[in-house]
Design a protein around this nucleic acid. Structure first.
Ligand SMILES: [Zn+2]
Ligand SMILES: [Zn+2]
Ligand SMILES: [Zn+2]
Ligand SMILES: [Zn+2]
Lengths: 135, 135
DNA sequence: CTCTAAAACGTTATATTATTACATACTGTT
DNA sequence: AACAGTATGTAATAATATAACGTTTTAGAG
């Protein structure tokens, strides 16, 4: 019976950092993470960046490129971060992962005119969230 | 007769930097730009970043967020950088502005479930360009 | 269990990207 | 001329990210 699940057991540093990001209600920056895990023995940037790289690679977290910040994936079926979309409030900086079947289908099927083969995309929407619109 | 056109005449630094980006066949990073315009009297990062900010604001250039680099807008009608899409080759780093009516319509009309109002989006596709696929 | 290769780790130093802060100069309008 | 808004020049520093090493841990093959 071959091993079917890709459940990778995270390393200690990876788990510490994922836990922190997971608990956070907002995107976390690498150095904010660093300051918050120093008590757990993670003392230097490379340790943080290595864990972040791996977590991104396996789809546990995503990087919000326009903010240089990281959020946990809420979408259990995007193990491979190959199709990501976010909504970002330019006022309060709230970030949500957009999960819309039509959208992801449309984009996954999108074909470039110049013959590029797409493996992955990242989409960031900017605007005002409900709360910030009222103000 | 009120002034109808929004043609803003660029300042000296803005023009120098736009010229450089315009001539480049690849995305330029801020410090690459800095090194290349020092002979023209632009000596420090803030001068570059200020010009870049303004050029992005008026839609003459776009920032490729995943690369921290800037490209000239090839699309005469995206004066306001509110709907941008790029294809990025992960092998040779070639970047092209995707100009597809269906895509931009679809995304511009996209409505968030949580009631956010979108003013702008940025989409980056990653993959392999024609040439890099062959290799 | 032992050996090995891959992955993860710890550490120091450094590279790269971006902003703050402040003083000065230019531009167009009233 | 006076004013407001935009742009400039400059020095210092903040924030983000990687290079380079050597060591340790982990997981799988034999
Ligand atoms: Zn996700
Ligand atoms: Zn908001
Ligand atoms: Zn454009
Ligand atoms: Zn290529």
């Amino acid at each position: 019976m071959t091993k079917m699940n890709k459940e990778r057991s995270l390393s200690k540093n990876q788990q510490i950092i994922l836990d922190l990001i997971d608990k956070s209600s907002e995107p976390l920056k690498a150095y904010t993470i660093l300051f918050n895990v120093q008590k757990k023995g993670i003392k230097a940037p490379p340790q943080v960046y290595r864990a972040l790289d791996k977590l991104v690679e396996i789809g546990k977290i995503h990087k919000i490129e326009s903010r240089n910040a990281f959020v946990a994936c809420k979408n259990s079926n995007c193990e491979i971060s190959k199709a990501t979309a976010f909504s970002i409030c330019e006022s309060c900086e709230e970030v949500d992962e957009v999960s819309d079947t039509k959208l992801s289908k449309f984009l996954s099927k999108f074909n470039d005119k110049k013959g590029m083969t797409f493996k992955r995309f990242n989409l960031e929407f900017f605007g005002l969230c409900k709360r910030c619109k009222i103000k």
